[in-house]
């Protein structure tokens, strides 16, 4: 089962991942955010084992497919006012579209006929990978873990500054 893995220590915040996602889907599902300590980082769906977005959805619009991809039946949530999922996701990965289907999310490009996620294909820094979940641990380094902690801390508390170097 494959998923996306981002090594934040290699990411330079160039926004290419967001750009190609936006080109394909109009509302990007991986989005750049400027952290309080000044770096631009992409936030994206982790396709959690036990997804919070899915648990809080009152319409059962979110489901996990047999490949572990957390997917959304976009039409089903048209009439939902709760938008619980937007608040529940700890990675800010549920997106408002402003269109007829009001919410969208990353589906790892399952509709692109085997091409795989476009964001990972186009990252110029080899920071964003589409890998088997079992391989993720082998990609981690001390630097990647430190960088991830910085980003984590920012997501939990957007006003916090980066931990000392």
């Amino acid at each position: 089962m494959k998923t996306l893995y981002l090594d934040y220590s290699k990411c330079i915040g160039c926004g290419t991942c967001e750009a190609v996602c936006k080109f394909i889907y109009r509302t990007p599902r991986i989005i750049m955010t400027r952290t309080s300590y000044g770096l631009h980082v992409p936030l994206y769906c982790q396709h959690c084992d036990n997804p919070k977005c899915m648990r809080v959805c009152i319409r059962k619009a979110i489901f996990q497919d047999d490949q572990g991809v957390v997917r959304l039946r976009e039409e089903v949530c048209r009439t939902c006012d709760s938008k619980n999922c937007l608040m529940a996701c700890p990675y800010v990965a549920m997106m408002c579209t402003g269109g007829d289907n009001p919410v969208t999310k990353c589906d790892m490009c399952v509709t692109r006929a085997g091409l795989g996620p476009a964001c990972a294909a186009m990252c110029p820094c080899d920071a964003l990978h589409y890998v088997d979940r079992t391989e993720m641990a082998s990609l981690e380094t001390e630097a990647s873990q430190k960088a991830y902690e910085r980003v984590r801390k920012y997501i939990i508390c957007p006003d916090c500054s980066a931990p000392a170097l």
Binding site: C14, G15, T16, E18, A19, V20, K22, M122, P124
Partner: peptide, 12 residues
């Protein structure tokens, strides 16, 4: 701009 915006603009 940035690499990302340049890529987007090229695709468009």
């Amino acid at each position: 701009s940035r690499v990302g915006s340049a890529v987007y603009s090229g695709l468009k």
